[in-house]
Protein backbone atom coordinates (compact mmCIF):
# COMPACT_ATOMS: atom_id res chain seq x y z
CA UNK A 1 0.00 0.00 0.00
CA UNK A 2 2.77 2.37 0.87
CA UNK A 3 4.96 3.22 -2.03
CA UNK A 4 7.76 4.79 -0.07
CA UNK A 5 8.91 2.09 2.25
CA UNK A 6 7.16 0.54 5.17
CA UNK A 7 7.95 3.18 7.77
CA UNK A 8 6.96 6.24 5.80
CA UNK A 9 3.57 7.34 7.13
CA UNK A 10 0.57 7.51 4.85
CA UNK A 11 0.01 11.12 5.88
CA UNK A 12 2.80 13.44 6.90
CA UNK A 13 2.33 17.12 7.61
CA UNK A 14 5.05 19.53 8.64
CA UNK A 15 4.40 23.08 9.71
CA UNK A 16 1.00 23.01 8.08
CA UNK A 17 -0.70 26.39 8.22
CA UNK A 18 -3.90 27.86 6.88
CA UNK A 19 -4.82 31.50 7.23
CA UNK A 20 -8.02 33.29 6.38
CA UNK A 21 -8.38 37.01 5.88
CA UNK A 22 -5.57 39.49 6.36
CA UNK A 23 -4.38 42.32 8.57
CA UNK A 24 -6.61 42.83 11.59
CA UNK A 25 -8.96 40.08 10.54
CA UNK A 26 -6.28 37.43 10.04
CA UNK A 27 -7.38 34.04 11.36
CA UNK A 28 -4.89 31.21 11.70
CA UNK A 29 -7.35 28.36 11.41
CA UNK A 30 -4.51 25.84 11.30
CA UNK A 31 -1.31 26.91 12.96
CA UNK A 32 1.96 25.04 12.36
CA UNK A 33 0.70 21.53 12.67
CA UNK A 34 2.92 18.44 12.45
CA UNK A 35 1.13 15.17 11.96
CA UNK A 36 1.99 11.63 10.98
CA UNK A 37 -0.65 9.03 10.36
CA UNK A 38 0.57 5.51 9.75
CA UNK A 39 -1.12 3.24 7.31
CA UNK A 40 -3.94 1.41 9.01
CA UNK A 41 -4.07 3.81 11.91
CA UNK A 42 -7.21 5.46 13.20
CA UNK A 43 -6.78 8.99 14.52
CA UNK A 44 -9.40 11.06 16.25
CA UNK A 45 -9.17 14.81 16.44
CA UNK A 46 -11.17 16.59 19.12
CA UNK A 47 -11.50 20.15 20.14
CA UNK A 48 -13.95 22.98 20.68
CA UNK A 49 -15.92 24.42 17.81
CA UNK A 50 -13.91 26.77 15.64
CA UNK A 51 -10.51 25.43 16.65
CA UNK A 52 -9.69 24.48 13.06
CA UNK A 53 -10.55 20.80 12.88
CA UNK A 54 -12.52 21.00 9.66
CA UNK A 55 -9.92 23.22 8.08
CA UNK A 56 -7.22 20.71 8.90
CA UNK A 57 -9.25 17.89 7.46
CA UNK A 58 -9.91 19.85 4.28
CA UNK A 59 -6.18 20.41 3.90
CA UNK A 60 -5.44 16.72 4.41
CA UNK A 61 -8.02 15.76 1.82
CA UNK A 62 -6.91 18.19 -0.87
CA UNK A 63 -10.14 20.17 -0.62
CA UNK A 64 -8.19 23.28 0.21
CA UNK A 65 -4.59 24.44 -0.08
CA UNK A 66 -2.42 25.29 2.91
CA UNK A 67 -1.00 28.79 3.28
CA UNK A 68 2.32 27.26 4.28
CA UNK A 69 3.86 23.97 5.26
CA UNK A 70 4.42 20.64 3.67
CA UNK A 71 2.02 17.79 3.23
CA UNK A 72 2.63 14.29 1.91
CA UNK A 73 0.02 11.72 1.16
CA UNK A 74 1.26 8.25 0.28
CA UNK A 75 4.66 9.70 -0.37
CA UNK A 76 3.40 12.40 -2.72
CA UNK A 77 3.72 16.13 -2.05
CA UNK A 78 0.13 17.38 -1.96
CA UNK A 79 0.44 21.14 -1.63
CA UNK A 80 2.37 21.34 -4.88
CA UNK A 81 -0.22 19.49 -6.92
CA UNK A 82 -2.09 21.27 -9.69
CA UNK A 83 -5.86 21.71 -9.48
CA UNK A 84 -6.16 18.65 -11.67
CA UNK A 85 -3.78 16.71 -9.45
CA UNK A 86 -5.79 17.67 -6.38
CA UNK A 87 -8.98 16.52 -8.06
CA UNK A 88 -7.32 13.20 -8.82
CA UNK A 89 -6.18 12.92 -5.22
CA UNK A 90 -9.70 13.50 -3.95
CA UNK A 91 -11.05 11.07 -6.48
CA UNK A 92 -8.71 8.16 -5.90
CA UNK A 93 -6.79 8.47 -2.66
CA UNK A 94 -9.21 10.05 -0.23
CA UNK A 95 -12.76 9.37 0.84
CA UNK A 96 -14.64 12.19 2.58
CA UNK A 97 -17.53 11.91 5.01
CA UNK A 98 -19.15 15.20 5.98
CA UNK A 99 -21.28 16.13 8.93
CA UNK A 100 -23.92 17.49 6.57
CA UNK A 101 -23.71 14.32 4.45
CA UNK A 102 -23.45 16.30 1.20
CA UNK A 103 -25.28 13.76 -0.85
CA UNK A 104 -26.55 14.97 -4.20
CA UNK A 105 -30.28 15.51 -3.73
CA UNK A 106 -31.09 14.61 -7.31
CA UNK A 107 -29.38 11.24 -7.25
CA UNK A 108 -30.59 8.05 -5.58
CA UNK A 109 -28.50 6.36 -2.90
CA UNK A 110 -27.14 3.96 -5.48
CA UNK A 111 -26.28 6.74 -7.92
CA UNK A 112 -24.59 8.76 -5.21
CA UNK A 113 -22.38 5.81 -4.39
CA UNK A 114 -21.67 5.16 -8.06
CA UNK A 115 -20.55 8.73 -8.63
CA UNK A 116 -16.89 8.55 -7.49
CA UNK A 117 -16.34 5.36 -9.46
CA UNK A 118 -17.81 6.97 -12.55
CA UNK A 119 -15.68 10.07 -12.00
CA UNK A 120 -12.66 7.80 -11.85
CA UNK A 121 -13.53 6.45 -15.26
CA UNK A 122 -14.88 3.07 -14.35
CA UNK A 123 -17.58 1.62 -16.54
CA UNK A 124 -21.19 2.19 -15.44
CA UNK A 125 -21.64 -1.54 -15.07
CA UNK A 126 -18.64 -1.87 -12.79
CA UNK A 127 -19.66 1.21 -10.83
CA UNK A 128 -23.12 -0.16 -10.33
CA UNK A 129 -21.90 -3.52 -9.14
CA UNK A 130 -19.47 -2.07 -6.61
CA UNK A 131 -22.08 0.43 -5.41
CA UNK A 132 -24.49 -2.41 -4.73
CA UNK A 133 -21.84 -4.22 -2.74
CA UNK A 134 -21.02 -1.14 -0.71
CA UNK A 135 -24.65 -0.43 0.06
CA UNK A 136 -24.99 -4.01 1.15
CA UNK A 137 -21.97 -3.55 3.37
CA UNK A 138 -23.51 -0.52 5.08
CA UNK A 139 -26.82 -2.33 5.36
CA UNK A 140 -28.77 -0.26 2.87
CA UNK A 141 -29.21 -2.61 -0.06
CA UNK A 142 -32.97 -2.20 0.21
CA UNK A 143 -32.73 1.59 0.04
CA UNK A 144 -30.63 1.76 -3.11
CA UNK A 145 -33.29 3.47 -5.21
CA UNK A 146 -34.34 6.04 -2.63
CA UNK A 147 -33.46 9.69 -2.98
CA UNK A 148 -31.58 11.16 0.00
CA UNK A 149 -34.70 13.08 1.01
CA UNK A 150 -36.41 9.76 1.66
CA UNK A 151 -33.67 8.48 3.97
CA UNK A 152 -33.11 9.06 7.68
CA UNK A 153 -30.03 10.92 8.89
CA UNK A 154 -28.28 7.72 9.85
CA UNK A 155 -29.07 6.15 6.52
CA UNK A 156 -27.82 9.19 4.66
CA UNK A 157 -24.58 9.12 6.57
CA UNK A 158 -24.13 5.45 5.78
CA UNK A 159 -24.71 6.18 2.11
CA UNK A 160 -22.07 8.90 2.42
CA UNK A 161 -19.66 6.40 3.96
CA UNK A 162 -20.36 3.94 1.16
CA UNK A 163 -19.66 6.72 -1.29
CA UNK A 164 -16.41 7.58 0.46
CA UNK A 165 -15.32 3.99 0.03
CA UNK A 166 -16.30 3.73 -3.62
CA UNK A 167 -12.80 4.05 -5.02
CA UNK A 168 -11.12 2.04 -2.28
CA UNK A 169 -9.29 5.06 -0.94
CA UNK A 170 -6.13 4.83 1.11
CA UNK A 171 -7.46 7.34 3.58
CA UNK A 172 -10.94 8.15 4.84
CA UNK A 173 -11.50 11.56 6.40
CA UNK A 174 -14.64 12.06 8.41
CA UNK A 175 -15.74 15.47 9.72
CA UNK A 176 -18.08 15.05 12.68
CA UNK A 177 -19.75 12.13 10.99
CA UNK A 178 -22.14 11.58 13.89
CA UNK A 179 -22.85 15.25 14.53
CA UNK A 180 -26.33 14.94 13.08
CA UNK A 181 -27.10 11.42 14.28
CA UNK A 182 -28.91 9.99 17.27
CA UNK A 183 -27.28 7.43 19.53
CA UNK A 184 -28.58 4.34 17.71
CA UNK A 185 -27.38 5.67 14.36
CA UNK A 186 -24.10 6.66 15.95
CA UNK A 187 -23.58 3.10 17.13
CA UNK A 188 -24.33 1.83 13.63
CA UNK A 189 -21.72 4.12 12.15
CA UNK A 190 -19.23 3.21 14.84
CA UNK A 191 -19.60 -0.46 13.99
CA UNK A 192 -19.03 0.39 10.36
CA UNK A 193 -15.91 2.41 11.06
CA UNK A 194 -14.61 -0.24 13.38
CA UNK A 195 -15.04 -2.92 10.75
CA UNK A 196 -13.28 -0.73 8.19
CA UNK A 197 -10.49 -0.02 10.61
CA UNK A 198 -10.14 -3.69 11.39
CA UNK A 199 -9.90 -4.33 7.65
CA UNK A 200 -6.88 -2.04 7.50
CA UNK A 201 -8.33 1.29 6.39
CA UNK A 202 -6.62 4.45 7.58
CA UNK A 203 -9.05 6.83 9.25
CA UNK A 204 -8.89 10.40 10.46
CA UNK A 205 -12.06 11.40 12.28
CA UNK A 206 -12.93 14.81 13.61
CA UNK A 207 -15.49 14.48 16.33
CA UNK A 208 -17.11 15.92 19.41
CA UNK A 209 -18.11 12.47 20.50
CA UNK A 210 -15.69 10.94 23.03
CA UNK A 211 -17.15 7.59 22.26
CA UNK A 212 -15.94 7.76 18.68
CA UNK A 213 -12.65 9.22 19.71
CA UNK A 214 -12.18 6.36 22.15
CA UNK A 215 -12.30 3.82 19.35
CA UNK A 216 -9.32 5.43 17.63
CA UNK A 217 -5.73 4.39 18.12
CA UNK A 218 -4.77 7.91 18.89
CA UNK A 219 -6.65 10.91 20.08
CA UNK A 220 -5.45 14.42 19.39
CA UNK A 221 -6.79 17.50 21.13
CA UNK A 222 -6.78 20.74 19.24
CA UNK A 223 -7.06 24.34 20.47
CA UNK A 224 -6.86 27.50 18.39
CA UNK A 225 -5.46 25.77 15.35
CA UNK A 226 -2.75 23.82 17.13
CA UNK A 227 -2.40 20.36 18.67
CA UNK A 228 -2.24 20.61 22.46
CA UNK A 229 -2.42 17.02 23.55
CA UNK A 230 -2.07 13.57 22.16
CA UNK A 231 -3.26 10.36 23.78
CA UNK A 232 -2.33 6.96 22.50
CA UNK A 233 -5.23 4.73 23.30
CA UNK A 234 -4.23 1.18 23.92
CA UNK A 235 -5.89 -1.92 25.24
CA UNK A 236 -9.57 -2.30 24.75
CA UNK A 237 -9.37 -6.05 24.44
CA UNK A 238 -12.05 -6.29 27.13
CA UNK A 239 -9.41 -7.55 29.49
CA UNK A 240 -10.32 -5.18 32.27
CA UNK A 241 -13.94 -4.80 31.51
CA UNK A 242 -14.96 -7.28 34.19
CA UNK A 243 -12.77 -5.78 36.87
CA UNK A 244 -13.82 -2.22 36.07
CA UNK A 245 -17.51 -2.61 35.48
CA UNK A 246 -18.17 -6.20 36.40
CA UNK A 247 -21.31 -6.89 38.38
CA UNK A 248 -21.08 -8.67 41.70
CA UNK A 249 -23.66 -9.79 44.16
CA UNK A 250 -23.54 -8.80 47.77
CA UNK A 251 -22.32 -11.69 49.76
Amino acid sequence: MNSNGADFPLVRARGLRKEYGSGEGLVRAVDEIDLDVATGEAVAIMGPSGCGKSTLLHLLGGLDRPTAGELWLAGRRVEKLSERGLAQLRRLDVGFVFQAFHLIDELTAQENVELPALLAGRSPRQARRSARELLEQVGLADRADHLPSALSGGQRQRVAVARALANEPKLVLADEPTGNLDSAATLELLRLFDALHAAGLTLVVVTHDERIAATADRMISMRDGAFVDETRLVGGSRGQLGSLFGVELEV
Binding site: R90, P116, L119
Partner: peptide, 12 residues
Amino acid sequence: QPLGIARALGAT
Protein backbone atom coordinates in the same frame (compact mmCIF):
# COMPACT_ATOMS: atom_id res chain seq x y z
CA GLN B 1 -24.74 22.10 -4.78
CA PRO B 2 -24.56 18.84 -6.78
CA LEU B 3 -21.66 20.06 -8.85
CA GLY B 4 -19.84 21.35 -5.78
CA ILE B 5 -20.21 17.93 -4.22
CA ALA B 6 -18.98 16.29 -7.41
CA ARG B 7 -15.91 18.50 -7.25
CA ALA B 8 -15.30 17.64 -3.62
CA LEU B 9 -15.38 14.03 -4.72
CA GLY B 10 -12.69 14.74 -7.25
CA ALA B 11 -14.58 15.61 -10.42
CA THR B 12 -12.47 17.72 -12.75
